[in-house]
């Protein structure tokens, strides 16, 4: 069974390019506006889109994504209508790989089996669950393994993962999400002191593309490690930009297409 993430990253690699991934919170500015933003990003050339399912206690997120989550919850966003959003964009012909970034309680409450089936049906391609470390993944992974159309569970690696890296990457699929700095999303671009060494170490072990995330604003931020990584993820900064431009579709498009272009300037 083909997965949109794996297909897309294969193409990116064939072209010898770097992938550009964005994060935005589902349901902002509202469901319709969010749908337009997803489509606009596909047109702008964003390779993969992370859609944050808002949760009341986003413990792995910094203030920007926290605020976006609370705002989205207050506007009625939940897992059910986020799944419907994906189903709708798929029906309308949008094929951009979509990864849900969400907290484990949201899945647990929905029911793990139900959740996996609903993702497969809607067309969700990947999952990032920041509070579900490798040791706690078995229950979810077993359910994912039952269905060929299941999304891929993306593995996160941190600068202090060290001896855990081979275990984390052994069966990893899609891409490896390398947290560039310690702590939470959206910090200034003061990357961890040994970040280059760390990325090199991950890259050595990884059989799949290595993406760097946390605290990236401009293509220049990743210049020093560009040769090592296969792409990067922009989250908090992208949310700030959307907020500044009142979720204007053209502003999003402009940012994404110029970021991706500059990332791949040789």
């Amino acid at each position: 069974m083909k997965n949109r993430i794996e297909e897309k990253l294969k193409m990116v690699k064939e072209k010898q390019e770097k992938a550009f991934i964005t994060y935005m919170t589902a349901g902002l500015p509202d469901m319709e506006g969010c749908k337009q933003l997803i489509k606009a990003q596909e047109e702008a050339g964003t390779d993969i889109l992370e859609l944050g399912i808002p949760f009341s206690d986003p413990v792995a997120d910094g203030p920007v994504i926290q605020a976006a989550s609370y705002k989205s919850i207050s506007r009625g966003t939940n897992l059910k209508n986020s799944l419907e959003l994906v189903e709708t964009v798929r029906k309308e012909g949008c094929d951009i790989p979509i990864v849900f970034m969400m907290y484990f309680n949201t899945i647990l409450y929905f029911g793990i089996g139900n959740f996996v089936n609903a993702c497969a049906k809607a067309g969700v391609d990947g999952l990032i669950v920041p509070d579900l470390p490798f040791e706690e993944q078995k229950q979810l992974q077993d359910e994912l393994d039952k269905n060929q159309q299941s999304p891929i569970l993306i593995q996160l690696v941190s600068p202090v993962s060290k001896d855990r890296i081979p275990m984390l990457l052994e069966n990893a699929r899609g891409f490896v999400y390398c947290v560039s700095s310690m702590g939470v999303t959206g910090q200034a671009a003061e990357f961890h002191k040994d970040v280059l060494n760390y990325l090199t170490e991950v890259k050595k072990v990884s059989k799949i593309p290595v993406m760097m995330g946390f605290g990236i604003r401009t293509p220049k931020d990743v210049l020093p490690m560009k040769e090592v990584i296969d792409g990067c993820i922009v989250g908090s900064h992208f949310i700030n930009l959307l907020e500044e431009h009142q979720y204007d579709v053209n502003a999003a498009k402009e940012y994404c297409s110029s970021f991706r272009k500059e990332l791949n300037d040789r």
Partner: peptide
């Protein structure tokens, strides 16, 4: 019980 924390806390 368990350890539902981010990867960056597992070694800690």
């Amino acid at each position: 019980g368990g350890q539902y924390v981010s990867e960056s806390l597992m070694n800690t």
